[in-house]
Nucleic acid binder design. Structure first.
Lengths: 343, 343
DNA sequence: CTGAAAGCGCTTACAG
DNA sequence: CTGAAAGCGCTTACAG
């Protein structure tokens, strides 16, 4: 690395103390005459000088870096979330470290440990797509470390600011729509068995059935893991074993996999089988036929999380402890009204 | 924030000097008796102590953070690239700051400036999806700052390690395949007009036509910008103006847009019009019909970039200055052999 | 309006 | 095998 310019160099060149240079750089009001300021700023420009972040953060205890822990960068929801957070925090002078856990609880904890001791000013941690352990999060939060959660559930998280999504309601809406369209045998693809939001989605499905007066049949529920392949495999299998006219997947990726399986089995979406996804990703939009799905507001969730985290960092209370996003249906062409056939 | 444990606390608790604690933490061989080491490590464990990164980096001049500058996090290629880099660098103890430029050269430079003065140990910068200015990159590299490029072109970049892709050859392969399948009127959707790799892809298309003995027609070339919408719009328009049996898009996203436009115009892929994409993304795989496309090896490019950057950081020369990835065709069902019809 | 000095929490010669 | 001390490059009371 080339020899670094330090605050000393600037001070010497301008014939002032480093204190003065520091003050000017940090825009302390009325700390010096306009002439001094101008002279210093010019020297700074000339040398392309920037304060050393490590030195600064050693005394201010701030790094201007935020950690974002998420399970799957290939999932459009997390991309949207990250983008929403980055757009907001970037404007405020923060940089984001992206930590990918691949859905492994162990990696979550490793990241949490390595980030928290002075590396970042705060952390946003999303659902882990796995059985989640929130102990460390709670400990950090109670210790005063700024941390917010996204789509994470648990009684222990009650006091920690988080953004959530009304998964149950969303699934009820999906079931109801299919019911209105005449569907009675509705299959379901779950997310990872232990993931909290996957459990909620399954519960929503059950509740939706109940409200519609449809009996819940375990045989129509397939175990997925949020990956496309699991949607494909499970529906490929189910199609040979069960009769059903519709399937709801716990996310868009699995819905796409399901569509592929349906086609590969010589059937058509939505003529033979209707498909509903979940997440409202770009995938849903561009898929053929466009997927009927539930909008999850990833970008806004990222923005709101960022706002709340920033409040925490600035020592203010985050607005509400929990912000719950409401499901919005994103229309598509992957479901069919079969009421005429039922009659 | 809760009161931080420092090296002093550990030293005091163990009745040794901070020097000794530091040595043990940094695994200096044979710096002390096994007993001392054990005692210290236990105290470290008990207190969950981790050295303050800022303090450490102030003296070592290392931050163990890498900056990754890319134009579009929604593009699967860059996700793969990032993942490849993160998997490799994560194992080596590095964290990655992700900087999204939205295809704006100005943001590239801002990130470059804010990252380089002590914030990161090195930078990986990809193609900008825009007219690129490499001056700052060259200046940094000449000043000894570790930086590697990805899919960036320019004579001024000659001395800077980079991974590239043989765009021209790839497009020649695409044209040849269509030619072999009997296509003679082959449309083309470009990337952003000033993006270097978009220019290369267009050149490859032209060269491919030449080799096949097909006359280049400007009217068959549409201006795209790597976004799906541009693929849709341009083909929607072209279809009403020109006769063509095939279209090559400069990336998968635009290819998908093109497919949609073709369908919306009442035609079929590939029965009426064949489509070839570029990037070999997941998108191509799951699209219906699966896109015929060119594999770009995003993950490996990320890994190789990371390796080279690490060598630079460690003061070693990067292997070769340029690593060029070879195109590999990824078969799909979006093109049709029409030789029988041409006869 | 300005500066000298302390101190943030580490690592690393230097000395023993 | 171990420690005292200097120093990394800043910010911030404190004093004038």
């Amino acid at each position: 690395m080339t020899k670094r310019v330090t605050i000393k160099d600037i001070a010497k060149e301008c014939g002032v103390s480093i204190t003065t240079v520091s003050r000017i750089l940090n825009k302390k009001p009325g700390c010096c005459t306009p002439e001094t300021e101008k002279r210093v700023m010019e020297a700074v420009e000339r040398a392309h000088y920037r304060p050393n972040p490590a030195a600064r953060s050693l005394v201010t205890k701030e790094t201007n870096i935020i950690g974002v822990i998420l399970p799957d960068i290939y999932n459009y929801f997390f991309q949207e979330f990250f983008k929403g957070a980055e757009d907001y925090l970037g404007k405020k002078g923060y940089k984001l470290i992206l930590c990918n856990t691949d859905g492994k609880a162990k990696k979550e904890n490793e990241f949490l440990e390595s980030l928290t001791q002075g590396m970042v000013d705060g952390i946003m941690i999303t659902t882990g797509n796995c059985s989640e352990n929130n102990d460390y999060i709670v400990k950090l939060s109670e210790g005063g470390f700024p941390i917010v959660t996204v789509e994470r559930y648990g009684d222990d998280l009650e006091q920690i600011p988080g953004v959530l999504f009304d998964n149950k309601k969303a699934m009820c809406m999906a079931v109801r729509r299919l019911y209105e369209y005449g569907h009675r045998r509705i299959a379901f693809i779950t997310g990872p068995a232990n993931a909290a939001n996957a459990v909620l989605r399954l519960e929503g499905y059950k509740q939706g059935l109940k409200e519609a007066g449809i009996k819940y049949e375990k045989a129509l529920v397939c175990a997925g893991d949020y990956q496309m392949t699991s949607g494909y495999k499970s529906i490929k299998k189910l199609i040979s074993e069960q009769e059903f006219t519709a399937v709801i997947a716990s996310n868009d990726q699995m819905a796409v996999g399901a569509c592929k399986a349906i086609r590969d089995s010589g059937k058509s979406v939505p003529d033979d089988i209707s498909v509903i996804g979940f997440d409202g990703t770009m995938l849903a939009e561009l898929y053929q036929p466009a997927l009927y799905t539930i909008e999850l507001h990833g970008y806004d969730m990222g923005k709101v999380s960022a706002e709340n985290l920033l409040k925490l960092i600035k020592g203010k209370e985050a607005g509400e402890k929990k912000v719950i996003f409401e499901p919005v249906i994103k229309e598509g062409s992957s479901i069919r009204d079969i009421t005429d056939m039922t009659l």
